[in-house]
Amino acid sequence: MKKSVLTTDWLFLKETIGLMDRKGLGKIGENVKSSSFDLDASARTETGVIVMSMFFVGLLIVAFTTNPVPSGTQAGERAPIFSGEAYDGTSWNSFEFADLLDTSWTWNSTEDSPWIAVEFLDTDCGFCKSSAQEVGQWSEMYTSPQWPGPDVIFIAVAVEFVSESSRAEIVEFRSQYENNFRYVDDLDISIADDWDVAATPTYFLVQPDGIVAWNSGQGSDTLGWDAKEEQSISLNGFDDGRVQLNEAIEQLTRLHEGE
């Protein structure tokens, strides 16, 4: 019974190959014949099984021993590291964003590592000017002893979007609005490119471990990142429904307080 089935199959295949030849598809017919009866094909399949097993075992080992976090500037992603020259009120010094991070930080850490607020601004941008004083006040408020939450370090990244700017303008802007935090020179817009910043002012709140907790330039500025639950959450805009930097700080850094 088995033999007759095989014979029928072979006759059917022969017919198919013959038909292909007659239709001018001789090459394809040959390949069908080759793959059915050429035992080299079994060596290839066997080798294929071996190497694919090797590939997937490799992938599985990597998958089971790591828990990757995507890089980017959306809430829940790992913020790009940057370095440059920063003005601290007296001189321009080298600045490393990575130095501010505490990579071992978790929500349950007993250590009170500071969060980081990053503002991208242009010294010629009207909105940046109108908010500069307020941002300066927040930078003092969120490091003061009266603030019950973790400290928030403010960093301004000065870009050149609107018109030509210079370090002298950055120094003048900082002093005019009495900001006491560091201003990083990004006049070549390299940091802004890495952070996908297309307009100013754009604000980010970054967790101590470098994960973006809030991005004002994201599709919805009400979207924050819950570090404890590791999921997105919706924030409230206290006045007009739009979430401001100070509102994001107050909600996210003290999210699970009292639980």
């Binding site: 990597v62 790591t66 995507p70 890089s71 471990d209």
Partner: peptide
């Protein structure tokens, strides 16, 4: 593996 580990911080 390093790529993933680095993304974890």
């Amino acid at each position: 593996w390093m790529h993933n580990k680095l993304s974890e911080g």
